[in-house]
């Protein structure tokens, strides 16, 4: 059992048999309106068939050539991408090693000459320095400390006075 919409479409397209067409037309309430609508639909169909014809291609050979080129290119590209890229570079391991060693040597030579050109430290930098001294005041309350250096052989003397004198037996080894 066809629906009304199916019968309607088949009626417009002229695909109903005589019996079917008579039965369907008997069900139409506004026969004249239906006829008008069918005529409009047929006109529209004819118009569309006429106007929507594919346009003729003027440069068919060129278009095919371009198409084949594009296909060939797209097929070739994934193969190239799948290959590892092995490019030759100047920065080989050996050259990097040589460059590093040479840079280190240049740095060392520069450092050596910069150090040589630095001004010589003054005399006091070669002498032993006393930074601080402490004598326990509870044991030696009168102790005093002084420091001096001899010029000839650069002896630094920490001179502590006021320590308690001790008997001779304290000189034992």
């Amino acid at each position: 059992m066809k629906t009304f919409e199916e019968n309607w479409t088949a009626w417009i397209d002229g695909e109903l048999s005589e019996t079917e067409r008579a039965e369907f037309e008997a069900t139409l309430e506004d026969r004249l309106g239906a006829e008008t609508e069918r005529n409009d639909a047929l006109k529209l169909g004819a118009f569309l068939k006429r106007e929507l014809q594919p346009r003729a291609m003027g440069n068919e050979e060129f278009f095919h050539h371009q198409l084949r080129e594009r296909i060939a290119h797209e097929e070739a590209t994934p193969v190239e991408e799948s290959r590892p890229i092995l490019r030759e570079t100047w920065w080989s391991i050996r050259r990097l090693l040589w460059l590093g060693a040479t840079s280190l040597a240049i740095f060392a030579v520069c450092t050596y000459f910069v150090k040589r050109e630095q001004p010589a430290p003054n005399q006091s930098e070669y002498l032993t320095q006393i930074l601080n001294s402490r004598v326990d005041p509870s044991v030696n309350p009168d102790a005093t400390v002084s420091i001096f250096q001899t010029k000839d052989d650069k002896v630094t003397v920490l001179w502590v006075d006021g320590l308690k004198s001790l008997p001779t037996d304290y000189a034992a080894k």
Partner: peptide, 16 residues
């Protein structure tokens, strides 16, 4: 008896 901090240099003996 005594405690001291010093920088002892090679070319300069220390006597206390």
């Amino acid at each position: 008896l005594l405690e001291t901090d010093t920088t002892l240099k090679k070319s300069s003996p220390l006597v206390i």
